[in-house]
């Protein structure tokens, strides 16, 4: 079962520079385990030590945020498209500037 996963630039050091990789699994947890087996260390960037999704990582199944689809238990099907993105909403640079102004 093949699922296409789009990897952001900042995580491509784990995929040998590849923009998209293929994985397998019937849940997001299984998929991430499968990806980690092929791209060692990737899991550690997506999942915290406590076992949840990293706060600044958003993962989308067919453009929908997995946090609202059961998070790591989200069900996956053959042909699904997964996108991993860093958490920045509109006006990314504005956010960074604002955070800096407030000393955060």
């Amino acid at each position: 079962m093949a699922i296409e996963v789009r990897v952001p630039t900042i995580l491509r050091s784990y995929t040998g520079g590849a923009k998209t990789v293929e994985g397998a699994g019937s849940t997001l947890t299984e998929l991430i385990d499968d990806l980690d087996a092929k791209h060692n260390g990737l899991k550690g960037r997506l999942i915290t030590a406590e076992g949840g999704l990293h706060r600044f990582v958003n993962i989308y199944v067919n453009d929908e945020d997995v946090r609202f689809l059961g998070a790591l238990d989200a069900k996956l099907s053959d042909g699904d498209s997964i996108t991993i993105l860093p958490a920045v909403a509109g006006g990314a640079l504005g956010f960074a500037a604002a955070a800096a102004l407030l000393g955060r």
Binding site: P8, T9, I10, L11, R45, H54, R55, F56, V57, N58, Y60, D63, E64, D65, R67, F68, T83, L85, P86, A87, V88, A89, A92, L93, F95, A96, A99
Partner: peptide, 29 residues
Amino acid sequence: EVVYGLRNIDEGYVPELYDASVLDRRFSV
């Protein structure tokens, strides 16, 4: 990705106002 300009995941930002419990679904377009 040019727009994000992040060097690593820890540079991400979630607005202080955000409370995920208010939302039922969230789409990336």
